[in-house]
Computed example of a mutant assay.
Amino acid sequence: MRRSWIIFAVVAYLGTLAAVIHAQPVQTPGTLTAEIRSALEQVYTRALPGAVRIETIPEGTGSGFFISADGLVMTAYHVIEDTQSFRVVNYKNESFPAELVGYDEFRDIAILRARVNAPVPFLVLETSQGPRVGEPLLAIGNSRGAFIAPRYGLVNTVERDIFPFFNSIAISTTIPLAPGDSGGPVINQAGRVVAVVVAIGQPNGVFESYLSPLLGLDEVIGQLKTGRKRDVPYIGVQLFQIDDDTATTLRIPKEGVLIRGLLRGGAAERAGLRGFAVRRENGQEVYDFDVILEADGRPFNDVTELQRYIRSKEVGDNVTLTIRRGSQTLKIELKLTANPTRRG
C-alpha cells in the first residue's frame, strides 16, 4: 500500500526508525522572534536543574526530567524499553541509578525512580491546558553530543497522527530535535511541562518534531506513579491489505484484511487463526488463509484502522473477530496480549 511520508522515531540508541505513513497538511505556525527566544532562554535557565540525561545499557542516550523532590523521573517509554539497566545524570553531572516504576506504551511515557540522596529540583506538569497552534515552546535534551541543552520552536498542530509510531495523537512542532532528545521535557513560557518528546519526521519535505501531550493525564500519571504498566494490546498477526490484484488472484471479495502470518505466542495463534499458506493439490496451487471481516461487530477493510481499533483497547480485553475461512464465516473470540515478540 502506498504511503506518502517518512517518520523517524527518536530512539535512545542514536539511530532512526523509518517508515511511511499518511500525509497530513502542515500548518504555518508563525515566527520565533528574538524577544520570544530570549524569554524562553530564561525559562531554560530556571528549568535546567530539573532536567536529566538518561544513560542505558545496552549503550544508549535519552532525556528526562524530575517530577518530584524524591527522585521520580518522567521520560519516553521507548528510551528505557528493553534495556537492562539505566541511570539518570543531572545538570551537576551527578549520576543516580534508577528503576522503572510504571509506563504507558500507548502514550509513550514512563515514570522512573532515581535513587537520590537528597531532595532534587523538579519541574511542574501542566495537565489542565495544552499548547496552542503557534505557541512557542522549549525542549531540553541530549542530542548531537550536547548535555541537557535547550531547543526552541513553535507548535504546528496539536492533533498530528503519526500512527503506528505513536498510538495516541501527537503535538507537532518546529523544535529542531534529534536522536537523544527522546523523553525530554517540553515547556511553555510559564515554565510548566506540557509534553514529552517522542519522535521526529519530515512530512512532504518539511521537518517536524512530535510530542506526547500531558493534557488531561492527571489520573494516568497518578496510576503510573503507583506502578501501573500499560502495554499496547496485540492480536498477534501480520496483516495484508486486500487490493484489486490480491482479490483477483485469491478469488475473494475486496473486503476485510488478510492474515498474512501469525506471531508465535500471540492471541491469534492460541485462538486457532490461520496465516497465509500455499499447498499443492492435484497438481494445482491451493491457498489457505483467514480474512478478518469484523472486530466486535465493526467491519474493517483497512489494516491501519483495524490496528488502531485494537491498540485503543487494553491488554486482557476480549475481542470477537468475524473471520472468512474459505466458504465459512466464523466468530472467534480471543484475549488481547502484549507484544508477543518481546516475551521471548
Rank of each mutant, 00 (worst) to 15 (best):
I200L: 11
G205T: 11
N156M: 12
I187F: 06
P164T: 03
V220M: 14
I200C: 03
L177R: 05
V193D: 06
L214R: 11
A170D: 08
G216A: 07
L217V: 09
S209C: 05
S182L: 00
I171D: 04
S212M: 03
S172Y: 08
F207Y: 14
E219H: 12
L214K: 10
R192F: 12
T173F: 11
G191T: 05
E208A: 11
L224Y: 05
S172G: 08
A195T: 01
G216H: 10
L177D: 05
V155F: 09
N204Q: 15
G183R: 00
Q189P: 02
I187G: 01
I169M: 13
S182P: 00
V186M: 11
I221D: 09
P179I: 00
N188Y: 10
N167H: 14
V220A: 11
I171C: 12
G216M: 13
V186S: 04
I221Y: 04
G201H: 08
D218G: 06
Q189T: 15
T157F: 01
A190Q: 14
L177F: 00
A190L: 13
V158R: 11
F207D: 14
V186W: 00
A170R: 06
L224R: 09
A190S: 14
L211M: 15
I169T: 15
T174W: 03
G180P: 06
F166I: 03
S209Y: 02
T157M: 09
G180V: 08
T157C: 07
I162G: 12
T174K: 04
F163G: 08
T157Q: 13
V194I: 12
V194P: 02
V220C: 08
S172M: 03
Y210E: 01
V186D: 01
L215W: 11
V155S: 06
Q189A: 14
I162S: 09
R160V: 02
P164D: 11
V196G: 04
E159P: 10
G201V: 02
L214D: 07
V197C: 02
N167T: 10
L177M: 10
G216E: 11
P203N: 05
I169H: 01
G201M: 01
N204I: 10
E219C: 07
I162V: 14
G201S: 07
I200F: 02
Q189I: 15
V158H: 08
R160H: 06
F165A: 09
S168H: 13
S212C: 03
P185F: 01
V186N: 03
E219Q: 14
P203E: 09
G201K: 10
P203K: 10
G216P: 06
V158C: 05
